[in-house]
């Protein structure tokens, strides 16, 4: 059963890792605008310039 100590430690560390990732995203401003990227992704790429 002692392995549980290790597993609990792992779970907490992993959760902390995700919390850190969230902080990172927050600091980078990913939560400042949650609407525009959803629209932006629907646009087609620009067609390459037509050569004449």
């Amino acid at each position: 059963m002692n392995i549980l100590y290790f597993l609990i430690g792992c779970s907490v560390v992993m959760a902390l890792f995700f919390l850190g990732a969230f902080f990172w995203a927050l600091k980078d401003g990913q939560h400042d605008d949650v609407h525009t990227p959803a629209v932006r992704i629907l646009f087609d790429d620009d067609k390459p310039e037509e050569t004449e």
């Binding site: 400042d32 605008d33 609407h35 525009t36 629209v39 932006r40 629907l42 646009f43 620009d46």
Partner: peptide, 27 residues
């Protein structure tokens, strides 16, 4: 609308002096 977004983010096509434009739609 999304057309506004598209156009305003392609301003560099009108004048190459515009390096980049990013729209925040809700704001």
């Amino acid at each position: 609308c999304s057309s506004c977004l598209w156009l305003l983010e392609h301003l560099h096509k009108i004048n190459p002096g515009i390096v980049q434009s990013r729209v925040d739609f809700l704001k």
